[in-house]
């Protein structure tokens, strides 16, 4: 499985854990997962930590914009880019 797929899988798992399978159908991938109420800041941070640990990534968020990285597609993009940097 490619890294991007693994990241996607990890985010899917977290969303399914909280909201069930159907959430992936109705998901708007550009919306902030936090503002839309799908994940609270706790869920989000713990998901980040899980992804970082399981995929052995060490992400620097210093210059990252949460408007982007809290959305489904934005997060995948940031994580894959950081991993490949």
């Amino acid at each position: 499985m490619s890294l991007t797929n693994s990241i996607e899988q990890a985010i899917n798992n977290k969303l399914i854990e909280k909201h069930g399978e159907q959430i992936l159908v109705s998901l708007n991938k550009q919306d902030s997962l936090i503002s839309s109420g799908l994940l609270d800041s706790l869920d989000f941070i713990s998901m980040l930590m899980e992804i970082e640990n399981s995929l052995n990534l060490d992400i620097d968020f210093e210059e990252a914009d949460p408007v982007q990285f809290t959305s489904y597609s934005g997060l995948i993009q940031l994580l894959s880019e950081s991993a490949n940097a």
Partner: peptide
């Protein structure tokens, strides 16, 4: 600060060169 940026507003502070900050400590902690 836009709703989606409240969670971790570091970039917003830098981008706009804010001079005065006010939040709960938990924001700083995140």
């Amino acid at each position: 600060v836009p709703e989606a940026a409240i969670f971790a507003p570091g970039k917003f502070i830098k981008q706009h060169g804010l001079t005065v900050w006010f939040s709960v400590p938990s924001t700083a902690s995140i």
